[in-house]
Amino acid sequence: MPKTKIIDAKHRQLFPSFGELKRYKDLFLTLAWRDFRVRYAQTTIGFLWAFIQPIVTLVILSLVFGRIAKVETDIPHTLFTTCGLITWTYFAYVMTNSGKSIIESQNMIKKIYFPRLIVPLSKAVVGLIDVGVTVLILIVLMIYEGIAPAGTVWLAPIFLFIGMIAALGVGIWLSALTIRFRDFQHIIPFMVQLGMFITPVAYPAEKAAEQMPEWAMSIYYLNPMAGVVQGFRWSIFGGEAPGNLMYISFGMIAILFVTSLMYFKRVEDEIADFV
């Protein structure tokens, strides 16, 4: 007796079905791999772009924050910034791409059923290219500067994972909101641009803490990436462990991610009617 599938207009779920997502694992992998294959398709220098983007960003940030603003850091400023860029660039890439993913795959969505959540989720994989490239740059710089990683370096993947959840949380929210309100398409680049300044990518959060009252710092850490970037950097270079404020960021990430799944589920069934 084959399995019975029931579609009921009255039946509403709070969360996406994880069992179903698991069944579509192969689609997830194929979509991720497709993005990987076509990311640099038809560009003349191809994969070189993956290096040029972070290097140029790094040079500019080092000039502005390191040389001009003379931000003081415990470790060489270039290293400091490279480390910050690893999680931030990943976050920005995944958020941007999962945010617009539903709109971009509307042709598919209108013609075939699959759990729609697969689409924004699959974007988390291809962003790992940038992580790999920036980590490579970081390793080269660390060897050059003669700085060894701290003993806490094994925590780095955990912070990266938290960064992934943060990016997906925001990305899933955006992908679902964009279906009805195309305005969000224009908000995404804005968020990436401003986000970098309110995230301690090229300056230490402690610097900001000196200038601001405690309550303002709590607000500062509502930015989910503030805690992730600080934590990731600490895991690699050691030093003073990040304070409790980091947990405000992590709490924020948990809330964003869980609510994003709920909101996505709520609109999922009608996506095909709106895109």
Binding site: M1, P2, K3, T4, K5, I6, I7, D8, A9, I109, K110, K111, I112, Y113, D269, E270, A272, D273
Partner: peptide, 16 residues
Amino acid sequence: SQITKPSTGRIEINGR
């Protein structure tokens, strides 16, 4: 084909 959800009613499908 489950591309969009019905507003009323119920569908039972036996099989892939």
